[in-house]
Amino acid sequence: MGKVGVIVSFEDLAGAVRRLSPSCGPVRVVAVDGPGGSGKTTFAGRLGRALDAQVIHSDDFPVPWDEPPAAWFTHVREQVLGPLAAGEPGRYRRYDWVRGAFADWVDVPVAPVLLLEGVSTARRTAPAAFAVWVEAPRPLRLTRALARDGAALAPQWHAWMRAEDEWFAADDTRARADLRLDGAAVPGEFVVL
Rank of each mutant, 00 (worst) to 15 (best):
W65K: 09
R148Y: 01
E88G: 01
H75S: 11
Q156C: 09
A122T: 06
P69E: 13
W167R: 05
A169D: 07
P187R: 05
T143P: 02
D59V: 09
G188C: 14
S58L: 03
V113F: 05
E135S: 02
F102Y: 15
T121H: 09
T173H: 00
T125L: 01
R176K: 15
P62F: 07
G183R: 01
L84G: 01
R77A: 00
L146I: 01
E88V: 05
W160C: 03
P155N: 03
H158S: 06
L81H: 01
E189Q: 09
W167H: 11
R94D: 04
V108I: 06
P62N: 06
G100T: 14
A145P: 02
P187V: 02
D66T: 10
A85Q: 10
W65M: 12
A103R: 12
D172M: 10
A126E: 01
W133S: 05
R176L: 13
L179F: 15
W167Y: 13
R144M: 07
T173E: 00
S58W: 07
R94F: 11
G188H: 11
P83V: 09
D66F: 12
V108P: 01
A184F: 14
W72M: 07
E67V: 13
A170M: 12
A163R: 11
V119N: 01
Q79V: 05
T121A: 08
A169M: 03
L115C: 12
W160V: 06
D172E: 11
W167F: 15
R180A: 14
R174C: 07
A111W: 07
A111D: 07
A71S: 11
A159L: 13
F190R: 08
T74W: 03
V186G: 02
A145M: 13
W133A: 00
L116Y: 10
D59T: 09
T121D: 03
R77C: 02
F130I: 05
R93P: 06
V108A: 03
P64M: 08
R180G: 02
D59Q: 07
T121E: 07
L140D: 03
T74I: 14
R174F: 04
G188D: 05
P187C: 09
A152G: 15
D66R: 13
A86E: 14
E164C: 00
V98N: 03
D171G: 00
V119I: 13
L140W: 06
A131P: 03
E67P: 09
G90R: 02
A159I: 11
R148E: 03
L146M: 06
D66C: 13
D60K: 05
R148K: 00
R180M: 12
L181Q: 04
H75V: 14
V106S: 11
P112A: 00
T173R: 01
A122Q: 08
A128N: 03
